[in-house]
Amino acid sequence: MTTLWDTTGSAVVKELAAQRRTGGAVLSGVALTLIVVADESRVAEAEEAATHAAEAHPCRLLVVVRRQLEAPAPRLDAEVLIGGRLGPGEAVVMRMYGRLGLHAESVVLPLLAADAPVVTWWHAAPPDRLATDALAVFAHRRITDTSLADEPLAALRTRAADYAPGDTDLAWTRSTPWRTTLASTLDSVSGRRSEPVRVHGGRVEGDSANPTAQLLAGWLSSRCGCPIAVEDGGRKPNSSGVDSVALQLDQDEEVRIHADRKGGAVISQPYRPDAGVALPDRPLGELLSEELRRLDRDEPYSEALEAATGTTELSRRSPEREHVWFDPADPENGNGARPRKRAAAKPAGDS
């Protein structure tokens, strides 16, 4: 590891190139560039999660920490690591002071892995409009986490208003075990009948203020073609905020999945004994790793977000954004900010 104090972007590029020349096989097979935007208070857990994800998805890891934007003079401190504490690949941790933090892309762009997709993850409060952050504009995928917001449901509506294909949310990723269990259970009922199951209604019980519970209900609503609401009550055994899901089927049958306190759930379905299934509260690194498995648009997420927020036609929006300059020290922001003509990278697989 090399630490560069009060340095420049050019010096960071040169140091990374110098270490790369001696890195050998450590640097082969980079699949993407992962940009992590984190608050100083969350850097340690962001680094731990990104390191876990990098073990499954070889990447160049660039951590951006914007500090003290009001500082009178811009400054950049950087750590450059090859095969060190942040995983087997290349990593650069950049702490930006003063107005340099408003132009983080000027340091990040020269560090992107050549010909590799770019994913930006905010382990912090993202901007209300991602187009105001150039680190979002040139990314193929953008990962936020509405559960970190002071008002998660308001943040969920903000993400819907600002949505572009390629956006996703770790609150959505937390619902994966529930979605997998529900899908396999309904498939089991269909197999017994030898015909498709029709869902006529249902409910998600848990914490109605949790965005994961709302997105799970939105996913069920979009898939089942009937409204599924989140009802308060019961225990909230994990970060999903979901205690149980009950679905009313045709032929007067019901499927119910109820979480227990041991990291699992009990499945109750017609004509079969209750069965247990693992439903663990997954660590942040596993959530991030799951999102890095796909670089195309996540249509089930957009459908769930539509149903959860009442916003329509999200999948029809353009996957490209134009950078809108935003200066937090300028009181006129939001009243005449003009977009810069910088189109976003298209999601992988788009023509």
Results as ranks from 00 to 15, higher is better:
Pro211Lys: 07
Ser188Asn: 02
Thr173Val: 12
Asp167Pro: 09
Asp169Glu: 09
Val204His: 03
Ala183Ser: 15
Arg192Asp: 14
Arg198Lys: 13
Val189Met: 10
Val189Gly: 07
Val199Cys: 10
Ala171His: 00
Glu205Asp: 13
Arg179Trp: 07
Val199Leu: 06
Ala209Met: 04
Arg203Thr: 14
Asp167Lys: 03
Arg174Gln: 12
Leu182Arg: 00
Ser190Arg: 13
Gln214Ala: 14
Leu182Glu: 08
Leu170Cys: 06
Asn210Leu: 07
Leu215Lys: 02
Gln214Glu: 13
Thr176Gly: 02
Ser175Met: 09
Val204Met: 10
Thr168Phe: 05
Asp207Leu: 02
Asp187Pro: 07
Asp187Thr: 11
Pro196Arg: 09
Ser175Ile: 08
Thr176Met: 07
Gln214Asp: 00
Asn210Gln: 01
Gly201Asn: 09
Trp172Gly: 05
Gly206His: 09
Trp172Met: 03
Ser184Met: 13
Ser190Cys: 08
Arg198Met: 14
Trp178Asn: 03
Thr176Ala: 13
Thr168Ala: 03
Asp167Arg: 02
Arg179His: 08
Thr212Ala: 11
Asp169Ala: 04
Leu170Asn: 10
Ala213Phe: 06
Thr185Tyr: 06
Trp178Val: 07
Ala171Leu: 09
Ser188Glu: 12
Leu215Thr: 08
Ala183Lys: 12
Pro177Cys: 03
Ser175Asn: 08
Thr185Cys: 02
His200Phe: 11
Asp169Asn: 10
